[in-house]
Design a protein around this nucleic acid. Sequence first.
DNA 1: CGCCAGGGTCTCG
DNA 2: CGAGACCATGGC
Length: 280
Amino acid sequence: MDSGIRARKSALSVVGGPISLDLTLRSGQVFHWDRLEDGSWVGLIGDRFVRVSERNGALETDRGSEGIVRNYFSLDHPLDEIYAAFPDDPLSREALEMCRGMRIIRQPRWECLATFITSSMKQVAHIRAMSLAIRKSFGPQIGEVFAYPSPGVLARADEPSLRACGLGYRAANLLATARRVADGKVDLEALSRLETEDLRNALTALPGVGVKVANCVLLFAYERLDAVPIDVWIHRVLLSMRRGRDGTAAQLARYARRRLGPYAGYVQQYLFHRARVSSK
DNA sequence: CGCCAGGGTCTCG
DNA sequence: CGAGACCATGGC
């Protein structure tokens, strides 16, 4: 990052762990963090600017930010239990060894939903570029960076200026969903009380949200750790696990749930990262 | 240039 | 219900 972000080198306080920040922030869950030369990361949690760093596998942050950092990076997730529940096949074992310490983070609901509406048929680098453009064009400035704009702000935007952020045909979907949320027709916080199936149905009723995007939001913003987004990468992984036997989306979803276990979303995230890294 | 990317939606059989 | 067309954009 060259925008002059130079976090103060004040002492950081230990939050907990274990965690791998690099893996967590580079695994296609979230797209707006910046890695500094010293290996620490800076970014916004909602509209709060924080610096996080990793020392001996433990997470550190600025004094006063410990609570929100601990929550955002899900330090309460029981990694030992999750790893014990990993499926016992070569691919999953390899993914685990490659990604140990990666955590599924707790993202703000709207920010996560909106970002993944823009993600369809886009590479991770493009999603990041669109996210930064939307933030810069519409979001409130926090110091030297920009937070994600609220539903109300985006609801009052027009489609051409969203397209100017590189969204293409996704602009209309983001605009329409922003309006439904801003109208109060959908309450993203209240939805958190729904059972996973009902929550998935409520999300897929929104413009630009199909099963895959809904599962991303379930996993990254609603703590449903068994939700399995099936994108082209995971599709290939599942195909390989089934020795080439393809199936309908529903069949593959059923297979993934059964095969990947109670923390299927975690397993999926590790498999996703392994597949992407090893293809380069 | 063709191909691919953390897909959704609509149409047609 | 399931397969196909179409939808923009950018990196390689």
